[in-house]
Computed example of a mutant assay.
Amino acid sequence: MDFQTSVKTCLTEKYMDFSGRASRSEFWWFMLAYIIGALVVSLFPLLPLIYALGMFLPLLAVGFRRMHDTGRPGWYFLIPSIYNLLVRIFGFGRYELDPQTGMPLEAPSVGGAILGAILGIVGLVIAIIFIWWLTRPSEPDANEYGAPPAA
């Protein structure tokens, strides 16, 4: 699947389709298009929010289908986002910045620094696992999510 076909498929034909499978090329070409679009709209105020809201469902859908293509449940695609949200909510502490210099007013405690390092390492491991999964070849035969996608 080429760049244009991938973008067309994800934005028109399978905008909210969480069933079936997506090939590596469909997923990665769409991710490239998403990133390029995000860079372009970041130059204008309010557009990044509108862009993120408009692209949320197709990005999530192609991620689910890509996970299906590797034989994994689609909801696994949510694990990095859920982890990031939990770390932000229950993180290792907050600190106040000096308004003039932008530097923290106090250093984190040793325990907070260790917890932050552990959470960072866990996040890195999750990212590596997901990049590995998303770059694996399609299962060659039909699986519980359907027939292999057309290349």
Score class of each variant (00 low, 15 high):
Ala38Pro: 03
Lys8Arg: 13
Glu139Gln: 15
Glu26Phe: 01
Arg88Glu: 07
Asp98Thr: 10
Trp133Phe: 15
Arg94Trp: 04
Leu46Lys: 07
Met55Ser: 00
Glu139Cys: 08
Ile35Trp: 03
Met55His: 01
Leu105Trp: 05
Thr70Ser: 15
Ser23Cys: 03
Gly111Ile: 02
Val125Asp: 11
Met16Glu: 05
Pro48Ser: 12
Leu32Asn: 07
Ala150Cys: 02
Phe30Lys: 02
Leu134Phe: 15
Pro45Val: 11
Ser138His: 02
Phe27Cys: 09
Glu139Ala: 10
Ser109His: 06
Val110Pro: 01
Phe30Val: 03
Ala33Lys: 02
Ile89Asn: 01
Tyr51Asn: 05
Leu46Gly: 06
Asp2Ser: 09
Leu119Asn: 00
Arg65Gly: 06
Arg136Glu: 08
Leu59His: 08
Phe92Gly: 09
Leu43Ile: 10
Tyr95Asn: 10
Ala127Thr: 13
Arg24Tyr: 02
Ala107Ile: 07
Trp133Lys: 08
His68Gln: 06
Gly123Cys: 01
Ser23Tyr: 05
Ser19Leu: 06
Met1Arg: 04
Leu59Ala: 14
Pro148Met: 07
Phe64Cys: 12
Trp75Pro: 13
Leu43Asn: 10
Ala147Cys: 06
Leu49Cys: 09
Ser42Ile: 03
Met67Gly: 13
Ala147Phe: 11
Ser19Tyr: 00
Leu47Lys: 04
Leu115Phe: 09
Leu53Gly: 14
Leu97Ala: 14
Thr70Leu: 07
Gly71Leu: 11
Pro108Leu: 06
Gln4Val: 12
Ile128Phe: 13
Thr101Met: 15
Ala61Asn: 05
Val87Ser: 04
Leu43Gln: 11
Phe92Asp: 13
Asp2Glu: 07
Gly112His: 04
Glu96Pro: 02
Pro58Tyr: 01
Arg24Val: 08
Pro104Phe: 01
Leu60His: 05
Pro99Gln: 12
Leu46Asn: 07
Leu115Thr: 00
Pro99Trp: 13
Tyr76Gly: 10
Ala127His: 05
Trp132Gln: 11
Pro108Tyr: 00
Val110Lys: 11
Pro148Gly: 02
Asn143Asp: 12
Met55Gln: 00
Ala151His: 09
Gly91Asn: 09
Met16Ile: 11
Ser81Thr: 14
Leu32Ile: 15
Asn143Ala: 14
Val110Ala: 14
Gln4Ser: 08
Met31Gln: 11
Ser6Gln: 08
Leu11His: 01
Gly93Phe: 06
Phe90Leu: 14
Ala142Phe: 10
Leu43Trp: 07
Phe18Gln: 04
Gly120Asp: 01
Leu60Phe: 08
Gln100Arg: 14
Ala107Ser: 13
Ala61His: 03
Tyr83Trp: 12
His68Asp: 06
Leu47Arg: 04
Arg72Pro: 12
Thr135Pro: 10
Asp141Ser: 13
Ser81Ala: 15
Tyr95Asp: 11
Ile131Met: 13
Gly74Val: 04
Leu134Met: 15
Ile79Lys: 05
Thr101Ser: 15
Arg66Gln: 06
Arg88Asp: 10
Val110Leu: 14
Gly93Trp: 08
Leu43Phe: 12
Ile36Gly: 01
Val125Glu: 10
Phe56Pro: 08
Arg66His: 08
Val110Gly: 12
Phe56Asn: 07
Leu60Val: 03
Ile35Tyr: 03
Met1Tyr: 05
Phe130Tyr: 14
Thr9Asn: 11
Phe30Ala: 00
Leu78Ala: 15
Glu139Ser: 09
Tyr95Gln: 12
Arg72Ile: 00
Thr9Trp: 09
Glu13Ile: 06
Gly93Lys: 08
Ile121Gly: 05
Leu39Thr: 00
Ser25Glu: 09
Leu115Met: 11
Gly71Met: 08
